[in-house]
Amino acid sequence: MSKGIQLMFDIKDLYQEVIVDHNRSPRNFGRLENADTTLEGFNPLCGDKLTLYLKTNSGKINEIAFDGSGCAISVASASLMTDAMKGKSLDEAEILFNQFHNLVTTDDDYDAESLGKLVALAGVKDYPARVKCASLCWHTLHSALQGDNAPVKTE
């Protein structure tokens, strides 16, 4: 065990106030009537599942919502993502997807300004088993925007 690193462990780095708050009161939670795109995402290992609802118009995400069940990381991630995605163009959404992916999987510098509140999820990268929890909704959104119909799985 790499004890040196683990001694610096603080659970609050992972469960920041923003995450706890978005888990307790998820934003954009619930079915979106008249969604033009609906896609499901599953994490077979832990049973997390969510459904993502999108209304797009002229290459822009007008409305976005989700429902489902999962751990705090996955619910907070979906809540923060849907907040961040509202009004974004499809190109901007793709850029944010890549920025988020880097945030939770690499030690590379990140653009805190464009990521905004999503930075709260940076702690996930120290928990390899939990990266999938944070990224499930993002992969689901990515597939939905690519026009895929098959449910998304993180395995």
Binding site: D10, I11, Y15, C46, C71, I73
Partner: peptide
Amino acid sequence: IHPHDIGTILDG
């Protein structure tokens, strides 16, 4: 509290 969050916090 979801069991996975319990697992992570207990591990800490």
